[in-house]
Write a protein that binds this DNA or RNA. Structure first.
Ligand SMILES: [Zn+2]
Ligand SMILES: [Zn+2]
Ligand SMILES: [Zn+2]
Ligand SMILES: [Zn+2]
Lengths: 135, 135
DNA sequence: TACATAATGTTATATTATAACAATAACTAA
DNA sequence: TTAGTTATTGTTATAATATAACATTATGTA
């Protein structure tokens, strides 16, 4: 396998599943992924979930928790899935990863009154996207 | 009970389920709730989910999305479940609702580059609580 | 009253996710 | 190289989370 790239060397299943998610304009759910990759030999839910777990772990995809769905990371700053923010349209379900230096900085530095130390966060904003606002 | 909330007259099932969640020191999952209220005559998952949906809608409880679990609101500022923030310990799973005027203000005013208008957000911080840090 | 709305009870089913175990592939170090 | 180790895969079964559909009962309101 080609080792020239510094990117993670995805395995066969991981690559099949990442490519599908990466091409999708909206988040995909696990069983929809399964249905779409069955022609490529991935037959069981666990094969999908294992690839998803790994892809989340290395930051290639993110899970949209409120939707149980997965989206490819398009934010080059975000090597690992430890600081994520998304906007979600409640009508058309369009999801966009938010890339804001100000927001990242604010949240990375946030400290609560108990002095708890945070290593990770996930933020989901909900509202109407531009398109749906005009309707 | 928190009187800052607008008083909703909870129905019988809603009250049984809210009381259970309110007394719990940690978030409860739907089927654990079901198990615990069966002696009070609530027999089916749907009875639990319907009460949970309503309680979330009126802001008496919140769903911790990353855990599929429910916690009572102890934040008097939080009339409705439109602006929520939690800290979650990744070892002991202790969850605390964050009440920070600065954070609320920052997030309520946040605007992304597409000019999307947000009506709601949910933020989950992950890390180690004080107790687990000392171990 | 009569109508509308909300909540309940019940059965069945859909959706999301993991357990357990055997086999293979890939990586590491003597 | 070769054995030991770890990661990944394949497979079957099952657990955990959540909703559909429909009949009934309670509550609010004109
Ligand atoms: Zn990202
Ligand atoms: Zn939209
Ligand atoms: Zn609250
Ligand atoms: Zn802890």
């Amino acid at each position: 396998m080609n080792k020239m790239h510094k990117e993670h060397n995805l395995t066969k299943n991981q690559k099949i599943i990442f490519d599908l998610i990466d091409k999708s304009p909206q988040p995909l759910k696990a069983y929809s992924i399964l249905y779409n990759v069955q022609k490529k030999g991935i037959k069981a839910p666990l094969q999908v979930y294992r690839a998803l777990d790994k892809l989340v772990e290395i930051g290639k995809i993110h899970k949209i928790e409120s939707r149980n769905a997965f989206i490819a990371c398009h934010n080059s700053n975000c090597q690992v899935a430890k600081a994520t923010a998304f906007s979600i349209c409640e009508i058309c379900e369009k999801v966009t990863e938010i890339s804001s230096a100000g927001l990242s900085k604010y949240l990375a530095n946030f400290k609560d009154k108990d002095g708890m130390k945070y290593s990770k966060y996930n933020l989901e904003f909900f509202g109407l996207c531009k398109k749906c606002t005009l309707k």
